[in-house]
Amino acid sequence: LDPQGHPAIHVEHLIIGMIIVCSVIWLLVMIMLGWALLRNRPDESERSRERKLTITVSTAVGATVVIIAGLTIASFYTTRSIALPENAALTITVRGQQWWWQVVYADPDPALGFQTANEIHIPVGQDVRIQLESVDVVHSFWVPSLAGKQDLVPGRSNSLVLRAERPGVYRGQCAEFCGLQHTHMAMMVIAEQPASYQRWVAAQRDDGAMPGDPDAAAGKTAFLAKPCAACHTVRGTPAIGATGPDLTHVGSRQTIAAGLLETTRGSLAAWIADPQTLKPGNNMPMVPLTSVELRDISAYMESLK
């Protein structure tokens, strides 16, 4: 837990505070236990002994009540201070599905909206509202360094506010068990300075890059000819499938398959050649390809910066 976000920092203070308080209580109880077990027993009349004990036990219970009240209040104030601010500068919709994250940057002008997957870019120092929805089962959105987690519940819409205080790449991960590949359902949150964030947004709004070299061009043809296009979208091409991640700019993302592999041509090839071995049970089938096709398609994918 390395808090770099506004809510996470508040919570960390609370966590440290509570751990200290509780450890002290535990130590006290243990000291009493040890002492009670080992002490020498003086002669004492039964009556006065029982009375003293009653007083001691009552005091301890009283102290418990006070400490509990204190902790409850501390918890309550922390909740308040991390409460959702009403006016977030930016709203991003994240849709969880088995086992990847669809990220939608909507815009009143549909031409300016775009989608990506498993990678969220946010500007540093601003409140960003994450709208959380689920396509299938319950997932949970958790970027430990930025904020606590929040579930994505089918049929409901939750939200969470992130505010990164420092630029960086923060790993996040699905925290609610969601089936076979719950394990491999990670995402990256990339916090950058507003200027470079805007540059990123502008780039994402573009259509998929035109393949430059011949391999990639062949890859594009193969990609469109194969079933890939039925599931994936590459804007600016006829591929408009919606069951898999939007691939318009896959090449620009740091990882593929929800944090499973770093994006390189080799890993893309490995993934496309046999997704089921790398991530057993995931929803992308193995599409039979010749080795040339595979090479070309991976080149094309990589070129989609």
């Binding site: 919570v11 609370l14 509780c22 209580i25 902790l71 922390t78 430990p144």
Partner: peptide, 22 residues
């Protein structure tokens, strides 16, 4: 008593948002 203490910790909403399901 250790378990009870961690119980009290996770009973706090903000604390739990970080450690729930971990």
């Amino acid at each position: 008593v250790i378990g009870g203490m961690t119980g009290v910790m996770v009973a706090s909403v903000p604390f739990d948002t970080q450690v729930h399901d971990t």
